[in-house]
Simulated scan of single mutants.
Amino acid sequence: MHTFVEQSHPEFVRALAVQTADRISPNAADFAADADPGLVAARVYLNEMIADPQHRAVVLTVEPAMARALLELNTSNRPASGPTLKKYEARMRRGWKLTGETIIVSRKGVLLNGQHRLRACISSGRSFEVFLAFGIDDDAFAYMDIGKTRGAADIFSIYGVPNAAAMSAASLWVWKYQNTGMMEPASWLKPTHDQLYEFFKEHHGLQKSYTAGHRFADNKVAPQAIMTALHYLCSKVSRTIADDFFEKVATGIGLKKAAEPAAKLRKRLLDDKIGGRRLGDLYVGAYTVMVWNAMRQNNPVPLMRWRGEQNPDQPFPRIV
C-alpha cells in the first residue's frame, strides 16, 4: 500500500511547489506559501505519478486534500449527480470499505472516473481507501461503466460537447431520419453512445441549430430535441428560410397572416397543448415537415394528419 504523508512544514511545501511549478501551475511558486500544505503535497505526488507511473495501480488512503487535488484533474468527466453525491457522502460517514472500484487518472493527467467518491470525501471530511490507477489511455473512458447508467449525454459531456444532453438527443433524431425513417430502430441497429458521438462529429452543424430548437422549449410549443434536429435538416436546404420559419413557429414573431404556413403549424401545436393532450414527438415532426414542404413548394398547407405509427405504408415525410 502506498502511504501518502502530508508534510506541513512551510519550507518543505514551498520547495515542493517551486520544484514542480511547471507541472502544477504556471503560478505555483506564487501561491505556494499560501496554499494548504496537504493540497500542495498531494499535487506534487499526483504530478510525479502522472509523469512517471511507478505502478499501474496503487492502494491509497485518500484524504480531503488528496481528493481536492484529484478533482483538479476533473476536466472531462460528466457532471456530478446531486442524488448520487448525497448517497456516497452518507456511506463515507458510515465508513467506506476498499471495494476494488478504481479511481483512474489518464496518461495526460485527466481524471476519468471517481468524482462522486472524491466529492463525498471532501463534503464528509472522511478519508477512504481506494485503488488509484495511472497511465490509462485517455480514450478508455468510453469503455468504462458501460453496464451502469451512463447515457449518450454523459459521453457527449465527457468529450466536451456544449449542450451535451440536447445535442445527443437531437443527434439521435437526425440518425433516425437518415437510417430508419424516424422509426425506433431495433436494439441491434440502434447506435451505441460512442457511435452516436461519432455521428454527431459528422454533423457538427447541429450545434448551430441549438438556439432554434431551444426556443420551442422556452415557449412550450414543441419538444426541443426533434425541433433542433429538423431545423438542422431544413437548414441544409436553406439556412435563411429555416431560421425564419422555425422562429415564427416557436415564437410567433414575424407572423402577419393566420393563413401562412408557419402560423398554421404554430396554431396546431399550441391547440394540442391547450386541449391538455400531448402530441407525440413523431407527430410534431411529421406535421412540421408537411408544412415546411408545403411552404417550400408553394402548395396549400395540407390537413395535418399522419398515421405512420399505425400504418407502415405512410412513411415519415422527407424534407424538400
Rank of each mutant, 00 (worst) to 15 (best):
E247T: 11
A164R: 05
F246C: 01
L196C: 01
L118W: 06
Y210T: 01
G160L: 15
E184C: 07
T228Q: 12
A225D: 14
D218Q: 15
A222H: 03
S127K: 13
E184N: 12
F245Y: 13
G125M: 09
I241M: 14
Y177E: 05
A250V: 09
C121P: 00
F200W: 08
L233K: 03
S235I: 08
D139C: 05
R117G: 01
S157T: 06
W173A: 00
G252R: 04
G147P: 02
E198R: 05
F246H: 04
M167L: 14
A133K: 03
F131Q: 12
D154P: 00
G254K: 08
C234P: 01
A166L: 15
R119F: 12
G252F: 07
I158E: 03
Y177P: 00
F246T: 02
K236Q: 15
L189P: 00
Q178W: 10
I253P: 00
M227I: 13
H214V: 06
R150F: 14
Y232C: 04
I158P: 00
K190P: 01
Y197W: 04
S123G: 05
I158K: 00
A164D: 11
L132F: 13
I226L: 10
G213T: 04
T149G: 05
A142Q: 10
I146Y: 11
K201A: 07
F245M: 05
T192K: 07
Q207G: 12
L189A: 11
Y210V: 05
S235A: 15
E202F: 05
L172T: 00
F128N: 02
T192R: 06
Y177G: 00
R126D: 07
A165P: 01
T192Y: 01
L196R: 00
S157R: 03
Q207C: 06
S187N: 11
G135K: 06
S187H: 13
N179A: 06
A242S: 15
S157G: 09
S235C: 11
R117F: 03
I226E: 01
G252Y: 07
Q195K: 11
F199N: 04
G205T: 06
T149P: 02
K201S: 09
A169L: 08
T211F: 14
G181Q: 09
R119Y: 12
E247I: 02
I226G: 00
L132D: 04
S235E: 06
A140C: 06
A164P: 04
A222Q: 04
L196H: 00
G254D: 11
F246L: 06
W175L: 03
P185I: 10
P191L: 09
C234F: 04
N163F: 13
L118P: 01
